[in-house]
Simulated assay, not measured.
Amino acid sequence: MSIVKQIGTSIIVFCLATCTTVADRSPETNALLAALKSLSGQYILLGHQDATAYGVDWSAEPNKADVKSTTGAYPAVYGWDVGHLEIGKPANLDNVSFNLMRTRIIEAYSRGGINTISWHTTNPTNGQSAWDTTRNSVKEILPGGKHHDTYNNYLSRLAAFFKTLKTDDGTAIPIIFRPFHEHTGSWFWWGEAFCSPQEYVALWQYTVHYLRNKNGLKNLLFAYSSSTIESEAHYLARYPGDDYVDIMGFDDYCTGDEAAYVKRMANSLRVLTKVAKERDKAAAVTETGYEQIPNANWFTQVLYPAIKDYPVVWILLWRNAINRPNHYYVPYPAHPAADDFREFYRLPIICFEDGLAPFDIYQPTKP
C-alpha cells in the first residue's frame, strides 16, 4: 500500500474518532468559543505577541507590557510560541522561559484575557529549525514514517506543558492553539512546496487527535492560519475539516507599500470572512503589523480602515523584540506613533483587555 493510501485511511480513522462535540471541550473553553463568535462583527480585539514577556528595553518585569505602557490597558489577546519546547529546552526560540510563559498565561487568564499559542517547531526529521525546508519531512513523521516516534515525543512534551496551564483551583486555561501556520507559503518545513495537501491534512488531524483524544486535553481550540489568501480554493486546499478547526485566519504584514498591504488585506478578508461564516467558525487576523511603524498614523489611517468592515474577532500584532532593537510592532510611549495608537485604542469597535470585562467570556452558559 502506498503512503498516500495509508494517509487516506488514517484520515478516515481519525475523523471517526475525533469529530468534535461540546463534550470534547471544557465548559470554559466552550464559553470562550461562543464568546468569540458572539463578539465577531461587534468588536475587534487587539492582540500582541509576547506582550508581557518582554518589550523595548525591558524583559520579564511584572505587570508590564508595551501596549499597557502606551495606552494604559493590556492587550485582549496574548500571543505565545512553544517552539523548542518539543526538544526539551527551558526557553522558546525567542528566549522566553516556559516557566515565565506559564505564569504570564495564567495571569492573562485571571484578568480575562485570551491566550493563543503558535508552534515554530523544530524539524523532527533532523533537529533543524522550523525554517529548515528538508523535503518530505511531513511524510516521514506521519504514522508509518521513519521519524514518527520522534514526532510523538514532540507531541508528548507539548501535551505535558498544556496540562500545566491551570489555575490554583485546577481549572484548565483555554488555549487557542495555532500549529503549522503560514502553510500556503514555503518557508517552513510544513509549507506547501514540501508536502501534499493530503499529507498536511493528515498531519493536522493526527496532531489534534493526539492532543485532544489521546491526552484528554479539553482546553484547546484549534486555529487554521494561512499566509496571505490568494483565493478561496487555495485557502481551503489544505483545510483539515470542520471537526478539526475552530478559528480560521491568515497572516500578512505591511512591509513598506501601504496601498499594496490594504489591497492584500481586502482580498484576504473577503475570502476569510466568507468561508468562516459558511463553516460557523470565528475569523481572525492571526499575525499582522508594520515593523518599526514608520508611519506615525498607521493604526488609524491604514490598519483600521483595512479591517473595520470585516467580522474578524481579533488581530494580533507581532512582537517587540528586546534582542533585536529594530524589530517591534507596537509603539512604546516615546514612539512617534504612540498618540495614534492611543487613538486606535479609543475607537468604539476596538477592544483591549479592559473592554472584555463586561462580557465574562469564560463563564459557561447556564442551561
Rank of each mutant, 00 (worst) to 15 (best):
Lys218Ser: 15
Asn215Tyr: 01
Ser186Cys: 06
Gly170Lys: 05
Gly216Met: 11
Ile175Ala: 06
Ile176Asn: 10
Val201Thr: 13
Leu221Ser: 03
Gln198Tyr: 10
Val201Gln: 12
Leu221Lys: 01
Tyr210Val: 11
Trp190Gln: 10
Ser186Tyr: 00
Ala202His: 07
Gly170Gln: 13
Ile176Lys: 01
Gln205Ala: 03
Tyr224Met: 14
Tyr200His: 14
Trp187Cys: 02
Ile176Phe: 02
Gly185Gln: 12
Ile176Gln: 01
His209Ile: 14
Gly170Val: 01
Asn215Arg: 02
Thr207Asn: 06
Asp168Ser: 13
Phe180Gly: 09
Ile173Cys: 06
Thr184His: 04
Pro197Cys: 11
Asp168Glu: 02
Trp187Val: 09
Tyr224Gly: 07
Tyr200Gln: 12
His183Tyr: 10
Gln198Pro: 04
Gly191Ile: 00
Trp190Thr: 08
Phe194Lys: 14
Arg212Ile: 14
Cys195Tyr: 05
Pro174Val: 14
Ser186Asp: 00
Thr167Cys: 13
Thr167Arg: 14
Thr167Ile: 13
Arg212Thr: 10
Glu199Arg: 00
Leu220Asn: 01
Leu220Glu: 00
Gly191Glu: 09
Thr167Gln: 14
Gly216Glu: 15
Pro197Phe: 04
His183Glu: 07
Arg178Gly: 11
Leu217Trp: 05
Ala223Arg: 01
Tyr206Gly: 05
Gly191His: 07
Cys195Ile: 00
Phe188Leu: 07
Phe177Tyr: 14
Leu220Lys: 00
Phe177Trp: 10
Ser196Val: 08
Asn213Cys: 15
Pro179Trp: 12
Leu211Lys: 03
Asp168Val: 11
Asn213Leu: 15
His209Ser: 14
Leu165Pro: 08
Lys214Pro: 01
Leu220Gln: 00
Val208Glu: 12
Gly216Pro: 08
Cys195Lys: 00
Thr167Leu: 12
Gln198Glu: 12
Lys214Tyr: 02
Leu165Arg: 05
Pro197Asn: 09
Lys166Glu: 15
Leu203Val: 10
Leu221Phe: 06
Leu165Gly: 10
Leu211His: 06
Asp169Asn: 15
Phe222Met: 06
His183Asp: 05
Asn213Thr: 06
Leu221Arg: 02
Lys166Asp: 12
Thr167Tyr: 14
Pro197Asp: 05
Pro197His: 07
Ala172Asp: 10
Ile175Glu: 02
Gln198Arg: 03
Leu221Asn: 04
Phe222Tyr: 02
Pro179Asp: 10
Thr207Met: 11
Ser186Met: 03
Trp190Ser: 11
Val201Leu: 11
Asn215Gln: 02
Val201Asp: 12
Cys195Pro: 01
Lys214Met: 03
Ala202Trp: 05
Thr207Ser: 08
Pro179Val: 15
Asn213Met: 08
Leu165Trp: 09
Ala223Ile: 04
Thr171Tyr: 07
Arg178Glu: 06
Phe194Thr: 06
Tyr200Pro: 10
Ile175Asn: 03
Phe180Trp: 05
Asn219Pro: 07
Lys218Phe: 02
Gly185Ser: 13
Phe188Lys: 04
Phe222Asp: 00
Glu192Ile: 14
Trp189Ser: 11
Phe180Glu: 09
Asp169Ala: 15
Ile173Lys: 04
His209Lys: 13
Thr184Ser: 06
Phe180Cys: 05
Val208His: 09
Trp187Asn: 00
Asn213Gly: 07
Gly191Asn: 09
Trp190Ala: 12
Val201Ile: 11
Ala202Ser: 08
Glu192Met: 13
Leu221Asp: 09
